[in-house]
Design a protein around this nucleic acid. Structure first.
Length: 475
DNA sequence: AGCCCGTTACA
DNA sequence: GTAACGGGC
């Protein structure tokens, strides 16, 4: 639409999970428009619904981003309520010419954004959504037949040779409006309320903000990337970039990571290609989420609706508490409580154990990850759980059941990881193992001196039971 | 991005 | 005896 608003009418920049200055197409476009800018973060119902750890972590990101904006002579206005109502009030208060944001790809976010865009356009103001969260818009990657990809490897082949937009540089200054609209105080939002005791423990393991994210990227590419292909599988080793936490809040853009990874590959750094492939796994998850949004809540393959998953149950509660008696499983579950993240190897093992050995619905596990992960991502969590359960695309066949003991021998041969997180296995437990008891709810009444529990189910018996349930459904 | 068991090849 | 490999789950 033609821009007929007065020249000094500001633009509202609606920030969501894009809390950065660099590699930010929306911000670059808004700065180029030359108008005063009113950055806003809205605690809307969709954001309120985040899991405890994700919401707490997002709050830290918002605080850091507000400081970043302040250093540029701008501000981050905080408002709470349904997004459309908040934006309409801000439009009235500022006389803004329009609202810009970076696109969301999850079903709830998309539904919200579609309604907001329609309503704003009906008011006669600009409503512009921009790319930025992904390397490529999901609808632009197509198979030869014009469909979407269901299998990772062809997706990777389609994506690896594509040009990725060069990241726009960060703006040096942001033009302030003549006056600032009122802002809530972040502390009043209590975004960490649901974390209870856990926040104090997990706080020691986060790296918040754009500068911290870039530091992680550069540290990784200047060393650990060389061993990434093998070290990434060892949970006792810090062999990964750990950027998932920053990516999910948008404190770093995927295009920045892509170009840095490509440079490392050109420089002949071993592991760089494997690293790029992991970034493309994230991209693939969003591709699937866009084309099959039911992946978040329903079996991706509907024939799995007949499978007799157990709903939530006492075994699943033991799993949540890191008390299955299976050391690799419990170490990983406790790692999540202590650090807010879980090593990828651990995620595959605990998901296999819950869905196969404990025959429990993958949605029970996915819901727990929603609540506990500071790096929670709607696309990756859904794809990962369905991959593990066997109900997803490009999924492991059902019979691919992880054996936690075999996995431990292969990937944690000296038990460093298991002992790091399970106090009961050491006479002198280390700080991470003890921190678990400080992080969990007091109502669990856990104590590091208690005996480590016997396994919930034998590994062979659990495997046989899962295979039997599967073949009963297929005969 | 698995596991397990049977077979085979070779020390 | 044990490592490597393949097929079926």
């Amino acid at each position: 639409m033609p821009d007929v608003a007065p020249a000094d009418a500001p633009l509202i920049l609606w920030f969501r999970r894009d809390l950065r200055l660099a590699d930010h197409p929306m911000l670059a476009a808004a700065v180029a428009a030359g108008r005063p800018l009113v950055p806003v973060f809205i605690l809307d119902p969709e954001t309120e619904r985040l899991g405890a750890a994700a919401k707490w972590r997002l709050g830290l990101g918002v605080a850091a981003f507000a400081e970043t904006l302040a250093a540029l002579g701008s501000r981050l206005i905080l408002r709470r309520g349904p997004a459309l109502a908040v934006l309409e009030a801000l439009l009235d208060q500022t006389g803004a010419a329009g609202v810009h944001w970076s696109r969301a790809y999850d079903p709830a976010g998309q539904a919200r954004d579609t309604a907001v865009k329609a309503a704003l356009k009906a008011r006669g103001v600009q409503a512009v959504s921009h790319p930025g969260h992904l390397l490529h818009e999901p609808w632009t990657v197509e198979t030869g037949q014009g469909g979407f990809y269901r299998v990772y490897t062809p997706f990777w082949k389609a994506v690896q040779g594509r040009d990725v937009m060069a990241p726009p540089p960060p703006p040096k200054a942001l033009r302030a409006p003549g006056g600032w609209p009122a802002s809530d105080r972040l502390d009043d939002w209590q975004m960490g309320a649901a974390m209870r005791r856990g926040a104090a423990v997990v706080a020691g393991h986060v790296a918040v903000g754009e500068a911290a994210a870039l530091e992680r990227l550069h540290r990784f590419l200047s060393g650990p990337v060389q061993d990434y292909a093998t070290a990434r599988d060892l949970p006792a080793v810090q062999g990964t970039s750990r950027l998932s936490e920053n990516l999910t809040c948008g404190e770093i853009g995927p295009r920045t990571i892509w170009h840095a990874g490509m440079r490392a590959r050109h420089e002949g750094k071993a592991g760089a290609e494997t690293f790029l492939k992991e970034l493309v796994w994230r991209e693939f998850a969003y591709h699937l989420l866009h084309h099959t949004p039911h992946i978040t809540h329903a079996n991706w393959k509907p024939e799995w609706d007949a499978f007799p998953w157990r709903k939530d149950n006492a075994d699943a509660e033991r799993w949540r508490r890191g008390l299955t008696g299976e050391p690799f499983v419990d170490a990983a579950m406790r790692e999540m409580y202590v650090t807010g993240t879980m090593h990828n190897r651990g995620r595959m093992i605990v998901a296999s154990y819950l869905t196969k050995h404990l025959l429990t619905d993958w949605r029970v596990g996915a819901a727990w990850f929603d609540d506990c992960l500071t790096d929670w991502d709607p696309a990756a969590n859904a794809m990962g759980w369905q991959w593990a359960a066997g109900s997803g695309p490009d999924a492991s066949p059902y019979f691919r059941i992880f054996n936690p003991a075999t996995q431990a021998e292969k990937f944690d041969p000296d038990a460093t990881y298991r002992r790091r997180f399970i106090a009961e296995l050491s006479r002198a437990p280390g700080p991470d193992a003890l921190a678990y008891f400080d992080a969990v709810p007091e109502s669990w009444q856990l104590n590091p001196k208690a005996a480590y529990p016997a396994p919930l189910i034998g590994l062979a018996a659990g495997r046989d039971r899962a295979l039997a349930a599967y073949s009963a459904r297929n005969s």
